[in-house]
Amino acid sequence: MTRFFYPSLAVVAVTVMSLLPLTLDPQGYEIRILCIAMLFAALGQAWNIVGGLANQISLGHAAYFGIGAYTSTILLRLFSLSPWLGGILGMVLAVLFALLLSVPTVRLKGHYFALATLGAGEAMRVIANSWASVTGGPVGISVPYSRESSLWMMQFPTVLPNYYLFLIALVIICLVFWKIQTGALGFRLRAIKENEQAAEVIGVDTYRAKLIASTVSAAITAFMGTLYAQFQFFFDPDTVFGVATISVKMALIAILGGVGTLLGPLLGAAFIIPMEEFANSYFGASVAGLSQFAYGVILVVIILINPRGLVALIGQIKNRIFSKGGSQ
């Protein structure tokens, strides 16, 4: 029974998610929140490949996200190139950047890796700000508004098609994560997480494993950047290369949900995005700063209750219920 339980649960979840928007206003608020939640679930899952499986805590993933968003948008503006092709080019550039960054960082661990990647993300932001002739600089960049609907150009009159693009992307990324997690690469990465030296002793090419994981993660993150650009239509360097808005947030979603688990980023995004919205709509106007304050406090509280996140917390609750039933 368990063999079919999780796959069938996944099928049910995907079916529900595909039918859900049909009941909603296609230009509405709820659908936008769902889109953002799926975007961040996908980003959290991408982060999870390096951050979760190999415990390489990256705080610079915004670099890849921004590369994706800027590459497709710049090419679209200059040559009317389809964002699909621009997105693929963005993925290539992100992979190149990941390889470049791996040269100085691949041997770093823990806090040192986190700080180095933080610096890399910030460096990209400074470049995007200063290189105004290409990026438009701090003023930001707009995707030209087309009143015609076109899948090839990723321009739609409602948010509904964007919703399905996000959903498909999320499903694919979850499959990629699951494939890596259960495959040979996943075992290697977990070996690195447990004890890198021991992993090397037993013959794991740790360098190669980390490199593959980080390039896959970078490519996925970059493509999500393109999807974001075609959904939001306007962005600036501070938004797509932001530490708090992207880098920390995608890590946060994976960590809060449960780091290194398939369900973690999904739970994390399903919790954080609506919570932010709730805080913004109920406290945002009345007292300045209250919503962000509440956000910070909730984060601290969850980590204090269980440092391993929501998945562990749910497991804990489940165990308590079952063990009660079992022992009596």
Binding site: I57, L59, L252, V259, I298, L299, V300, L304, R308
Partner: peptide, 14 residues
């Protein structure tokens, strides 16, 4: 470490 990092990040927001 992830928990340590994000506790202090939460503290920063708060």
């Amino acid at each position: 470490q992830v928990a340590q990092i994000f506790l202090t990040v939460g503290l920063l927001f708060a």
